[in-house]
Design a protein around this nucleic acid. Structure first.
Length: 434
RNA sequence: GUGGGUAUAGCUUAGUUGGUUAAAGCGCCAGUUUGUGGCACUGGAGACCGUGGGUUCGAAUCCCACUAUCCACCCCA
């Protein structure tokens, strides 16, 4: 078969055999966030390009080479969102949510888009769960957001996941730190890789993130941001750690973590999964961004948040996904012979469905045998055969597919009542282990 | 963006030093007499061997390009 085309590069179709797993994880994420009073917000998939230029930052890789940007028919520059924070904050400001109760706590599940070369755990279209807490500068807010993130992984039984935290300070302390970093790397310029040389000018902190062995070696002895934090930032960071300790949340302080987006200040953190299939993959990240709200035209407002890649979470979960409850099994399958039977089955099926049973009827006009085969394959609990005899006598047999036992059932007004009796009996026996 | 692997039915794969109608298992469909599933047996549908060039009398097999996919780097969720 020659298909016209296939799904675009870096996208994925989530088929019925997997979609329920996604749904389960998504529900769990939103539910856990709601325990911390985060409420769902839904924002557009695309925004005006300038939003991301300003928030994510001109110099970032995301903006420089990964955005899906195009002109619409009205000549507006539009960009498919590469992350969730900017849109959430924009919407919050546009609808004056921060003029109501502070803090504002928002959660979302967004499809995001980045033009990257796909590989394991990386797609061009990916689903991101995020939470944003706007209005508090208190270190407890940081601890609470990290705690939410941590609790999610606990709830998912992802135990080989750990949290790394750092503080990138405020623009004030970062200025001094950059100078010192530049000075340090200038001295070791000869051993740096080419990418790092260009980073030296634009964003020396990114050199700390380089994985090349030569750069790693130099970075090892580079000055640490933690030694340059101003008293306010330092105190803030200490408080955050104190709260995390109280909550018995495990974390490593890693002065080398640098988040990829420009808006971060003070606390930043990453969630790294060491599970099979996602070894060392960053499946979440976040931090404080005290200047972003103002940057987008709002009043000076402290805020912070985090994002998790849902695809990466599923990757990390691996075999755990097998324990997720699947779609409801079929309660009753109607095997039908002839037009009249088909019609009757259709009516009876809807009666059962109104009582929230899961029912399926034959729609392929197959012979009885293949129909029973099918009922078996879909693991129907009961099968009811309808043919000429049954219609004439207004009585049918309902077959328990597990033990092949059959019981009579009326097809008239008593149908639902009798079915209930048979069904509860069946469930009772199951509980008793028969 | 850089480097490497892979590309044969829906899925998993076989395909010998290039040689004629490209195999198998699973899955799907149908049958094994009349209206009943799980087992077994029989049969069937389904592949222009990723695409396009080239080498050759002859290419799934060799060469080149492209595309897709996977992996690593970069970056990140």
């Amino acid at each position: 078969m020659k298909l016209l085309t296939s799904a675009p590069r870096g996208t994925q179709d989530i088929l019925p055999k997997d979609s329920y797993k996604w749904r389960f994880v998504e529900n769990l994420l939103l539910d856990q966030a709601s325990k911390f009073q985060f409420k769902e917000i839904r924002t557009p998939v695309f925004e005006h390009t300038e939003l991301f230029l300003r928030s994510v930052g001109q110099d970032t890789d995301v903006v420089q080479k990964e955005m899906y940007t195009f002109l619409d028919k009205g000549n507006r520059s539009i960009t498919l969102r590469p992350e969730g924070t900017a849109g959430a904050i924009r919407a919050m400001l546009e609808h004056n949510l921060c003029n109501e109760n502070l803090p504002v706590r928002l959660s979302y599940i967004d499809s995001c888009y980045r033009y990257e070369k796909p590989q394991s755990g990386r797609w061009r279209e990916f689903s991101q769960f995020g939470c944003e807490m706007i209005g508090s500068s208190d270190p407890l807010a940081d601890a609470e957001v990290i705690s939410l993130c941590d609790s999610i992984f606990k709830r998912l039984s992802l135990n080989e996941t750990y949290i790394e935290i750092n503080s990138v300070g405020c623009p004030k302390c970062r200025g001094k730190y950059y100078e010192s970093l530049k000075e340090y790397f200038e001295k070791n310029k000869d051993s740096l890789c080419n990418t790092c040389l260009s980073r030296l000018e634009r964003n020396p902190m990114r050199i700390l993130d380089c994985k090349k062995s030569d750069c790693l070696k130099i970075a090892e002895n580079a000055p640490s941001i933690l030694d340059f934090l101003c008293s306010e930032c330092k105190e803030h960071f200490e408080e955050v750690k104190k709260y995390l300790d109280v909550a018995e949340i495990k974390y490593n302080v890693n002065p080398k973590i640098v988040r990829g987006l420009d808006y971060y200040t003070k606390t930043v953190f990453e969630v790294i999964s060491m599970h099979e299939g996602s070894k060392g993959l960053v499946c979440g990240g976040g931090g404080r961004y005290d200047n972003l709200v103002e940057e987008l035209g709002g009043p000076p407002t402290p805020a912070l948040g985090f994002g998790l890649g849902i695809g990466r979470i599923l990757l990390a979960m691996g075999d755990l996904l097998n324990f997720i409850p699947q779609y409801k099994a079929c309660d009753v399958y109607f095997a039908t012979l002839g037009e009249e039977a088909k019609t009757l089955a259709f009516q009876l099926a809807n009666i059962l469905r109104d009582s929230s049973f899961v029912v399926e009827c034959d729609t392929l006009n197959r012979k009885l045998k293949p129909q029973m085969k099918y009922a078996d394959k879909i693991a129907a609990k009961f099968a009811i055969v309808l043919g000429e005899e049954e219609i004439n006598s207004k009585k049918a047999k309902i077959k328990n597919m597990a033990d092949s036992s059959e019981k009579p059932i009326s097809l008239d007004n008593d149908f639902l009542k009798e079915f209930f009796e048979i069904y509860t009996d069946f469930e009772k026996n199951k509980l008793l282990g028969n």
